[in-house]
Design a protein around this nucleic acid. Structure first.
Lengths: 212, 212
DNA sequence: TCGAATATATACTCATGAGTACATTGCATG
DNA sequence: CATGCAATGTACTCATGAGTATATATTCGA
């Protein structure tokens, strides 16, 4: 998933091709974003200075500015990566065979797992207010896309009878809320597997807490 | 629910009793917190300066410092109020008669509604990192209490057979997550009633999204 | 009536951290 | 080989906003 620039090829020529240079650059940018997102998740965006991020990589702040325009953009890129993963998950789920409920389940499992991962966590933990107006619009728009995907899956499930009839908007918000929340409490270093957790949460959401 | 200092008594003496003075002072402190929480919820804690809060009340920053120690304390008091409401709700629910499921439902309804209210929203929207270390501990501790109440209700419900067997910790987090999320999207000025919304979300959570 | 305490304002200080100016190195290419 | 761009560092600027020093008015109690 990450663009890895440390090429392992045997002929480690000291003369990188333009192609290699491009990917080296991308790898550095990636490294900055990865370092940033981890600190944002740990201490929060406003408690993290770009000096801190730079220091954690053993570089200096202007180097970050060489790869990214400003702090707002750093955050925006982070959430864009997370949201990109979520959108990809939605598109994969749509391709699945089976009932609407099956497709929804597949999506939700990925959705939950992503939200416990670095970039996904950042999406959840970032309040719209943290971003500058234009970035905020972008952010909101992408989130709306995810929501829309989820609602569509729900509507399809209701249509084919594999889901109980309900208000799709409300259902999407409710389910998403439940699966977003681990971004706040789940410890990625702990011993609870994200995938396991996701499975259990989805089981509960699908069957409800009342006995059947 | 709010301490209202504008006494309506007919004999509006210009010589307030010590009792009245105490309550006037409390009312002013309340007003500061209310103004603060609203701005925090709207623009976020870090985007809100105490100068802004003061201006919104037609007073000046030092006046706020006269009633509250510092910005961290302003935030802490806000979340303490919200958490106080939640704890009260838990205690009321515990007193209810009926099955464990009934008590849980009663609690959840209040829980959800509070989370759409000023102080409850602030509890949800405030990340632990925003607070100073000691306040953060306080905050976490109170949140743990709520969680513990919720888990107890779930355990009781499972014990009396009114709830499906499940891992109480996971169930509590899942349900809480779903009911917390409206703090992020619900518009208190909109036309969707918080109580209605709460009812519907709980219905979905209790019965699940699969057909029965 | 004098002094203490309360309530409020004006006008500061001062740390932090985003963002920049500028120097440097090194490779790459006309 | 000179010029120019990519990559990086050092050392700044500058706005913001938390928190404070200090002045003033009011009220209450001795």
């Amino acid at each position: 998933m990450s663009t890895c620039g440390q090429s392992m090829k045997l002929t480690a020529s000291p003369f990188p091709s333009p192609e290699e240079k491009r990917s080296t650059r991308a790898a550095k940018r990636d490294a900055v974003l990865r370092a940033a997102v981890q600190m944002f998740n740990e201490r929060g965006f406003h408690q993290t200075s770009l000096d801190d991020v730079a220091a954690s990589l053993g570089i200096s702040k202007p180097t970050i500015y060489h790869y990214l325009g400003n702090k707002d953009q750093v955050l925006l890129e982070c959430v864009k990566i997370g949201l990109g993963q979520l959108i990809a998950a939605a598109e994969e789920a749509r391709a699945h065979s089976g009932t609407g409920a099956d497709r929804l389940s597949a999506f939700l499992a990925r959705y939950a797992a992503i939200n416990m991962d670095d970039f996904g966590r950042c999406v959840i933990r970032t309040g719209d207010e943290a971003l500058a107006p234009e970035s905020r619009e972008r952010f909101r728009d992408l989130k709306r896309q995810i929501d829309s995907h989820m609602r569509n899956l729900i509507v399809e499930g209701i249509a084919d009878g594999s889901l109980a009839p309900c208000d799709p908007k409300l259902a999407a918000f409710t389910i998403a809320g439940a699966l977003n929340w681990p971004a706040r409490w789940h410890d990625p270093a702990g011993n609870e597997s994200a995938v396991d957790l996701a499975r259990q949460m989805i089981a509960l959401l699908s069957r409800g807490y009342l006995p059947r």
